[in-house]
Design a protein around this nucleic acid. Structure first.
Length: 224
DNA sequence: AACGGAATCAACCGCACGCTT
DNA sequence: GAAGCGTGCGGTTGATTCCGT
């Protein structure tokens, strides 16, 4: 026997929230909080929604100080580093990104960051040497730090699809290619350094080496 | 302009955990 | 200690938007 559902799914509304529902939920939670009980909140607030749905809507969208839109490079770096340290514990990762929700971070990782990183990594690992136009025509050899390796968690399909996307018609993984720069010089330099494990953390995160500090805090917290 | 595939993201689902009784 | 319940979380889905042909 499974546990009883939290509400009668056939009687509550599902799908996207309308502005009226948002307003109802927002004003209720701002006035009374959730009363320590999300399950009973919809009834009290006059909403025909599941309590879990209300909670999610509040946390991910209506809560004050929620940040929407593009992630910064520092946030990218933080997510990636934390993911390497603690894995897909999105709620923990989100705690270190003010204004971001676990859902946001998870979506961002799954849809953009994972691909972005994989693309970069494929560009580097599939070639022994790379000619980067943005590096004054220097030929750069880039070892990839095992600690920063996330490719093992990705499917072969993802690897191959992104590889073909990044390399265009080039089918020889050992060939040396010149990668066309689709990003600005700073970002290119950042990712090169980051993926090679040789980025200057003080430069990226500030003089207090914020990344190290945060990872240590998390490690202590999780007792690893 | 129309279509189809890809990308995005809000929302749902089910499970695990912790608290209360 | 067991059962019931609410909450929090990560994985997944599906509607919508974007973009290339």
């Amino acid at each position: 026997m499974g546990r009883a559902p939290c509400c009668d799914k056939s009687k509550v509304k599902k799908g996207p929230w309308c502005p009226q529902e948002d307003a109802l939920l927002k004003s209720f939670v701002e006035r009374f909080g959730n009363g320590g009980n999300w399950i009973s909140l919809p009834k009290k607030a006059g909403l025909n929604r599941c309590g879990k749905s209300c909670r999610l809507r509040w946390l991910n969208y209506l809560r004050p100080n929620i940040k929407h839109g593009d992630f910064t490079q520092e946030e990218d770096c933080m997510i990636y580093s934390l993911y390497n340290t603690i894995g897909s514990r999105w709620s923990v990762i989100a705690k270190y990104l003010p204004g971001r929700t676990d859902n946001d971070v998870k979506n961002y990782w799954n849809t953009k960051l994972k691909k972005k990183l994989l693309l970069r990594r494929c560009e580097i690992t599939n070639k022994d040497t790379i000619n980067y136009p943005n590096y004054q025509d220097q030929t750069i050899t880039t070892p990839v730090s095992p600690a920063l390796d996330v490719s093992s968690s990705l499917s072969q399909q993802e690897v191959s699809s992104h590889d073909s996307g990044s390399s265009g018609s080039n089918s020889d993984p050992n060939s040396s290619v010149s990668i066309e720069s689709s990003v600005d010089d700073h970002e290119d330099e950042f990712w090169m350094n980051f993926l090679s494990g040789s980025f200057d953390r003080d430069v990226v995160f500030g003089s207090r080496s914020l990344l190290e500090e945060k990872i240590n805090e998390i490690a202590l917290f999780l007792d690893v």
